[in-house]
């Protein structure tokens, strides 16, 4: 009892049929949150005393940075599940999570550079957190490159899962890097353990954006994984029946 859902996840078909109903809800919720957070943050939140309006890029920068780290963990954990329980679906999630995470890392690097120009006067500084973000991007790219190098899909999954797990050794170092080589970058502003140094009027839109980004990430990962499921299961009967039903214009 209680673990049945976990075993059911072993079936890509069950996953595909179950998540069919989630997609519209997730899409509505994530776009609503993103719209509310963006309008609130960009139009109604007060301007920063020192940075003026340029600080408003944090409403993109911070959620993207959150997700680039969380996305790596999601990728590595699903890779581990795929290795340990030989679950096909986990392998597919890992494969799909890699490019999505890489894009979020890239977004956070680019928005960081755009933010750095007006505040620090330069596009790029070799600061600890920026550098570790860049290394995180390299880790993602390595996983993607290894995934694509293998002809055989199963080997590719296992190999990149091992690489992702090895890479997680670097993630604590990325977090710790702020303490290790504290340089230009300001220390982390959102603290859950103590009073955060950001004003609530700026914090609430930011939190809305963070939750919106998480929902959006889940949505993209779901859509991508569902496509992967169809791609890999294209020779099975249920996919063919699904395609036939679609072609006939019937409701799936």
């Amino acid at each position: 009892m209680g673990w049945q859902w976990f075993h059911r996840l072993g079936s890509p078909r069950w996953f595909y049929e179950k998540t069919d109903a989630w997609i519209p809800w997730l899409a509505v919720v994530s776009f609503a949150l993103l719209a509310v957070g963006a309008i609130w943050g960009l139009a109604f939140a007060p301007a920063d005393m020192k940075q003026g309006n340029s600080y408003r890029i944090i409403y993109i920068h911070v959620p993207a940075a959150f997700l680039s780290l969380a996305g790596y963990y999601i990728m590595a954990i699903s890779g581990a599940i795929g290795l340990i329980w030989k679950m096909k679906l986990a392998d597919m999630v890992m494969k799909c999570a890699a490019p999505i995470g890489a894009v979020f890392t890239f977004i956070s690097l680019v928005t960081g550079a755009i933010w750095g120009k007006p505040t620090w006067g330069t596009w790029w500084v070799w600061d600890a957190r920026i550098t570790s973000m860049l290394v995180l991007l390299f880790l993602y790219l390595g996983v993607i490159a290894l995934q694509q190098a293998y002809q055989h899909q199963d080997t590719a999954n296992k190999a990149s899962a091992i690489l992702a797990l090895v890479g997680t050794v670097n993630i604590p170092i990325i977090y710790k890097s702020v303490d290790w080589w504290y340089t230009l970058h300001q220390p982390a502003t959102i603290k859950f353990t103590s009073e955060s140094t950001i004003h609530p009027s700026m914090l609430y839109p930011l939190l809305t954006m963070v939750i919106g980004f998480y929902c959006f990430y889940a949505l993209v990962l779901l859509i991508s994984t569902r496509t992967e499921v169809l791609e890999r299961e294209k020779k099975t009967r249920w996919v063919n029946e699904l395609a036939a039903a679609k072609a006939a214009g019937g409701k799936v």
């Binding site: 880790l139 390595g142 996983v143 290894l146 091992i162 170092i173």
Partner: peptide, 23 residues
């Protein structure tokens, strides 16, 4: 070990290992 079965593993090996060498 990850790239030994690949024919052109040399460059890929560098790409996947170099980030891990940073610390």
């Amino acid at each position: 070990a990850l790239t030994v079965a690949l024919r052109k593993g040399g460059l890929l090996l560098s790409l996947i290992i170099m980030p891990l060498y940073v610390p």
